[in-house]
Amino acid sequence: MTNKYLICLFILLNTFSASLFSQSTDKEVHISLGTVYNFNENEFHEFWNPSMGVEFEFSFDHQFGELGAGLTLMRFDKTANATLSFYGINYYFLFAKNFTIARNVSLILGFDFGLYEFRFDEYDDSEIPDVDVEREFAVKLVAGFGYRFAGSWSLEFKTAFNHVYTKKEIDLFNLHLDVTKSFPMSDWLAEILE
């Protein structure tokens, strides 16, 4: 029950810190590709066993921080007979703030919010409701480190707390390992994004 207050507090602190420390004036767009690994255990895992997932993100620098959108895809195989396996697809808007703590190394704090889609495997059982897809609102709190190398490439290692607001709420702690390529923002793209 205290989750919701912690989530709100984290988001507020993150937003507050963003308003105190303005982002670098070098405007770039970032494209990330990475993997997601779920490492916690709770009641959810009595029904489903998560596999390694993939992540894709697009973001751009704004004076306030890094803004963007992304998605993760993970496979959840059933561990109990009375349920179905599914793909979990999380579509989200993201906000992140990079704080440089050493040369080429930065601390990353951020949060995402969007929809978590449960895309169920096909089945043929008249006793199970005929549903293909379920969706629910989800938030994700993110903290980690980034290492910039070869000029425009970065390696990011992040932990994330993913909270899905289903009736019986779902909490997933994930590790993310991303490779990010950054590009200078062209004038025409800057005009569209601002």
Partner: peptide, 17 residues
């Protein structure tokens, strides 16, 4: 908009709502 409280994957379990 989407109001929270869907059953999600628990639709097929004893936590169905």
């Amino acid at each position: 908009g989407n109001e929270i409280g869907d059953p999600g994957p628990y639709l097929f379990t004893e936590y169905a709502s």
